[in-house]
Design a protein around this nucleic acid. Sequence first.
DNA 1: ATTGATCCGTTTGTCCGACAAACCGACTAT
DNA 2: ATAGTCGGTTTGTCGGACAAACGGATCAAT
Lengths: 265, 265
Amino acid sequence: MDIMTPPHSPETDRFERISPLPAYQLVAEAIEREIVSGHIPPGEPIGTEADLVKQFGVNRSTVREGIRCLEQSGLIRRESSRRLVASLPRQGKLATRVSRALILHQVTFRELYEAIDMLERSAIELAVAHRTDDDLQAIARNLERTRDALSEPIRLAELDTEFHSLVAVATGNRVLQLAREPASLLIYTATQPIFEHVPEAAPRLLAAHEKLYDALVRRDVEDARAWMRRHVADFGKGFLRTGRTLDDPVDRIPFDSIFQTRGTS
Amino acid sequence: MDIMTPPHSPETDRFERISPLPAYQLVAEAIEREIVSGHIPPGEPIGTEADLVKQFGVNRSTVREGIRCLEQSGLIRRESSRRLVASLPRQGKLATRVSRALILHQVTFRELYEAIDMLERSAIELAVAHRTDDDLQAIARNLERTRDALSEPIRLAELDTEFHSLVAVATGNRVLQLAREPASLLIYTATQPIFEHVPEAAPRLLAAHEKLYDALVRRDVEDARAWMRRHVADFGKGFLRTGRTLDDPVDRIPFDSIFQTRGTS
DNA sequence: ATTGATCCGTTTGTCCGACAAACCGACTAT
DNA sequence: ATAGTCGGTTTGTCGGACAAACGGATCAAT
């Protein structure tokens, strides 16, 4: 992994960039600038392809290629396949992208486990500080459903994921939410087999979630962090009991459940 | 922010997706599958446009639109503007995207500050556990350069960013690296003014970095976390002294330093 | 009057064919 | 061996074209 190059290194580039970018990129950048600068607020319609052809004075094919780029980057979205509107990149899509990248880079379960340990303890700490009553209610409902699903591995895995997402929402911190989401997506695929192989996993999960809920109610940071650590450690132990080892790369088996970048959205 | 919908909810979708996706998306997905499944390893060339036209039996325009999508998502890269090759999405590009999204969603400095506090303490903790001698050397070199740049705000901001990136690299954990990078990019823009407005900021930064380095050398987790907390707190105080408040949204002033999604790469 | 069906212009997705410029590799001359 | 030339290849862009889907308006029916 290379280190991020600082945004601008004054010595290295003595001349202006000499490559006139292809027109479709110029189109994309022009529209992009209008959106990120706020001139086109989210929800506002971009013109039709014909409009853009007129405005930019380029061919329709060129406009279309530019649009594809923006569409892919999430800055424009289509309502009803007809209306192209400016849009804020959806966090779910971004997280999905990042997850996929992590898989392709073959990160190990150890990395995933360690990161989640850190991220989830951070999340619960901030959630303790910022949770509202609404957050608590949402989590309580999740606990309710979890109690009813103790014998359904698939449902349990979903509810576990949801629990941690709700905790993240309770932080009121979108930076941390977006930071932890990719890891959360990745671990989902490893969760379900645990409930199938390890009988005590389900009740332990419920117990931990309840303790975490309690800590959130009482705003007890230490307790919250401690239980989250145990909860994540439980996952680690359970994971090992499913026969895999921590140094395996996060694999590419569950593609279809992860790679829903296109589709319903 | 809405809650992440679980990867697959069995009740909701009873029928197959009925909309035959546009051909260019099918092209994109087909190639995407070949890449993520590993059939086309990174670096391997995709065919020319003419090849793809033949293989998919669609028009060249359609192929091109599909290619634009993949290019944008980072699964395809071009060597020499001629050769299209499969590629692993670069973490820098992903992080840039996420940063941009956070700006567009107008996250506040408070969110950014809290998240960084958590993420950086996590990073330093993992770095203490996993750092190699090479990591230490790289950080030592960064300290050296920092000592020489105490009176140059721009350079200091760059070196600070680099320091924390190096710590992240020292974790050996790419999940955490990718989780913290977007926040790191965002804070870079807020760092430089601090060195201009707050005289003691530079020496305090250096002192903190040196203490953190020490803690890494001695593998002292508690010390490392404590100093990181102080270091981040320093940033917070310095930030307030530049006249802004924590509840301002992270603003869109420094576009050009952030939005380098296209260009040199 | 509200509901339902029909019609027409618009917009998108796709195709075809074409051309200039840039690129690549081979070939030639020094 | 190096430099320069040349021709085929590939990309970027263009113009035009058409079917299908969509949206809105008009008209018919309850």
